[in-house]
Design a protein around this nucleic acid. Structure first.
Lengths: 381, 381
DNA sequence: GTGAAAGCGCTAACAC
DNA sequence: GTGTTAGCGCTTTCAC
């Protein structure tokens, strides 16, 4: 690939052997800068030149070196996206639409996984900043303060997504997790339910929804909520285990910790000895009191639906189930899942818009967009 | 962000204002090249210099410009991955492990979505090649011959994955879809089933599995297979609809086309008028003869399981179901799904290894790795 | 072990 | 409209 061709090696460095703008320009009989303009700002160039350059490109198979272009123009046309993990399907839609919206405008997406822990975050940020992207899209919170500082210092446009923080780093498109928690509590109450359980991942945003949900039930004068946290990213399996746990718990107000899938913590409420009811499948474990479960993801909800069926619980008669995310499968489950719909694709598009506007020198007017959410009512409630 | 600092603007171009290697070198009292070596090849530099440079970096918050480094060294430390769509969860695991394995070695992943159609492919390839990545990872087939030519011509290392083509472009890590089809047919027969249905996405690789499956059943002397194709990417919904279709079909040997979710084509077998049985939920539609369904994805299989339950069919008693992919949820469904397991993460790791080896000048010994697959037997068969 | 010079391939800034 | 010049920030090459 880095073969020198016939010319004897000199003191000077040889290129990669690839066709450069120089070659194209020579073939077209113009100066390199003119060839550059013919390709990048065709309006500035005569039709004749445009044609000659186009021909030369076609003949040589020239592909512009965007690394060089980016270095010279200080515009890399690269955008970085940071997600906790790509396997949490919630962000997938956003990443997908982001990739598409960017590609459409000639930008490319660089993907980084920060993990839910926040340990790799700094190294990741350094790698990203080093590429001088035209923008960075963050999904979820940035854990380290050092990271925030670096980002700010780099001067790179940043879009935070999937959240509504009071102090955005730069631009933001998201929604309020607190509102989601409240809205779901109110919704379930309106359906005549009042003894709630929660199954949630232990990530920042899910916990915020849960806290708001719990606070709202208290404000409504409803019984204490039983909460089971499972490690993020959430899975069908942890959903099943969590429901089993919820149903097997001794009293009515205790969240029971245990070895659900790993670190499952009991939150808010006194802790009680983990006692496992282990109802055999088919032998219905009658719910002592919980008549509705709010899950922090649709996958978790699918697990809860599955376990409920195995336990002989009828959904929605015995138990109402609400998910979060409105993943593609939610509408087609049996029973169809009631869930919180987030316009993930819209978030991606809007983030792309923000960054491209900035990169191209346009002012970004409202720097914060609350994209909202909606509860999609289906059979499971 | 591009603020000039105190110095008055001259005729010459001003930098971005960011800290450069020059600044670090000056602060450390060495030549730029020495600072460069202290960072990149510390062994070539005295401990004293190493320390001084490290201090200067810490004091200034220097982040190397990898665009400039890449241009000069002809190594971008960028790797491009091309997937049909990121939302097909099958490749997710591969992309995830690829990202991680690369990040671990100081490489960054660029993501491109080619779509299942192959229309955006050429533009995507051009954008990718323009970045001069150190490698390109392809999942699934490259449709356009022009694309192949460009790739070959670019001299960039290429790893094809998730398939075993007879004529790889460069390197490859995958498995045989033909073998999968055969193995599943043999497996189902060994379970005492013999009237098979297939529900599959209409993408290249799925079709190859289906063809092999059908051929194998013929070779085994079994009845003709009823095939329903659904558009890729596959969904739970299309799985449900496809099973309904399969069960409602008039004879026993006909694949029935129709408006399942869009272009659902009837393959191999005579076509019959699409007649919709639409059995009301709860009112079991007795399977006339199909006793096993092979699905081209686990999501499809989940749809089939769901629809079977709604129809009152017992799995596995009335109907055996086999999926493909062994997604995380497969093991925890009720009934747990028998499926074809692919080591997706291993594919990603191996691809990263290939590319990094190449980029760092090491020879890649076997350029083709057949990573195999396995049938994971669970409750659904 | 360290440095000076010369680019990597492209575009911004001025000319004309 | 087109060309000249001087870099973007780094690393290679060669010399000491």
């Amino acid at each position: 690939m880095t073969q020198d061709d016939a010319t004897p090696p000199r003191r000077t460095r040889r290129g990669s052997g690839a066709v450069t703008l120089h070659d194209v320009a020579k073939l077209a009989g113009v100066a390199p800068i003119t060839a550059s303009r013919a390709l990048n700002t065709p309006a500035q160039v005569s039709a004749d030149v445009r044609q000659k350059v186009a021909d030369a490109v076609a003949r040589t198979g020239y592909v512009p070196n965007l690394l060089a272009g980016g270095l010279a123009s200080r515009r890399s046309r690269l955008v970085a996206a940071v997600v906790p993990t790509i396997s949490g399907p919630v962000f997938l839609e956003t990443v997908q639409s982001l990739t598409e919206a960017l590609a459409h405008r000639g930008y490319q997406l660089m993907l980084g996984q920060a993990g839910y822990g926040g340990t790799r975050e700094d190294a990741l940020l350094e790698a990203i900043i080093g590429r001088r992207p035209d923008g960075i899209v963050l999904t979820g919170i940035l854990h380290s303060a050092e990271g925030r500082r670096r980002l700010l210092g780099s001067g790179i446009p940043v879009v935070e997504t999937w959240d509504l923080t009071p102090t955005p780093i730069d631009m933001l498109v998201g929604f309020s997790h607190v509102e989601v928690g409240r809205a779901v509590a109110a919704f379930l109450q309106s359906k005549g339910r009042h003894r709630f359980g929660v199954v949630a991942g232990d990530d920042e945003r899910a916990k915020r929804r849960v806290d708001a949900f719990v606070a709202a039930t208290r404000a409504l004068g409803l019984p204490e909520v039983a909460v089971v946290l499972v490690p993020a990213p959430t899975t069908l399996k942890s959903g099943r285990q969590a429901l089993a746990r919820l149903m097997a718990r001794p009293g009515g107000r205790d969240a029971v910790g245990g070895d659900v899938a790993a670190p499952v913590a009991a939150t808010r409420t006194r802790r009680s000895a983990a006692r496992r009811g282990d109802p055999a499948p088919g032998e219905p474990a009658l719910p002592r009191d919980i008549d509705a479960v709010f899950c922090s993801s649709d996958l978790l909800a699918l697990g809860v639906l599955t376990e409920a069926r195995v336990m002989g619980l009828r959904v929605p008669q015995d138990l109402a189930v609400v998910g979060f995310g409105d993943l593609e499968f939610a509408a087609d489950l049996a029973p169809a899942l009631t869930t919180v719909h987030i316009k993930g694709a819209e978030i991606g598009r809007q983030a792309a818009q923000f960054i491209v506007d900035r990169a191209e020198g346009r002012a970004v007017d409202p720097r914060v967009i609350d994209i909202g959410f909606s509860i999609v009512e289906r059979e499971s409630t």
